[in-house]
């Protein structure tokens, strides 16, 4: 069975998004008329167009061999985890600590598994970000835990 999985999935997801946007707009916002468009007009039309495009992308993908893909699960989790921790912790932990922790999380995905290397990396990046943003650009952001 030949399938172009990326295109198939992409098309179906886009069609789904389009459909949702269109229905949500029709349901929640006034559509108006062509002469006097309401806030729902654009999203409703665009959502419809996206749904159609999604179908156009997905249909031929059903009968076509697609490229093999490899999803980088570990990298994905490490990178997104690092960002989420940084976002949640910046105000509470301060720039220095949160950078240290986030870099350690991000480094999980790195091929170099030595713990010493990770610590050196985290300290380097922390020093760099504190130097550039806190001292260099004087960004209004807490440096240490507190407030």
């Amino acid at each position: 069975m030949k399938r172009d999985i990326p295109d198939l999935a992409g098309g179906v997801i886009l069609a789904g998004i389009g459909l949702f946007v269109s229905l949500y707009a029709v349901d929640h916002y006034e559509i108006g008329s062509l002469r006097r468009m309401g806030p729902g007009f654009f999203p409703a039309v665009l959502g419809g167009v996206l749904a159609c495009l999604g179908v156009v992308i997905a249909l031929p993908a059903l009968v076509r061999q697609g490229p093999a893909i490899r999803i980088a699960w570990k990298e994905c989790l490490a990178v997104l985890g690092a960002i989420l921790v940084f976002a949640a912790g910046l105000d509470r932990l301060g720039l220095a600590l949160v950078t240290l922790i986030s870099v350690l999380i991000a480094s999980v995905a790195a091929p170099d598994r030595r713990i010493g290397w990770r610590i050196v990396l985290a300290l380097t990046v922390t020093a760099l970000s504190v130097a550039v943003f806190s001292f260099g650009l004087k960004m209004t952001v807490p440096l240490w835990p507190g407030r």
């Binding site: 301060g94 004087k138 209004t140 440096l143 240490w144 507190g146």
Partner: peptide, 12 residues
Amino acid sequence: MIMSRRAALLGA
């Protein structure tokens, strides 16, 4: 904005 760094340190 000059204050911010000092403020952050003092705050800590």
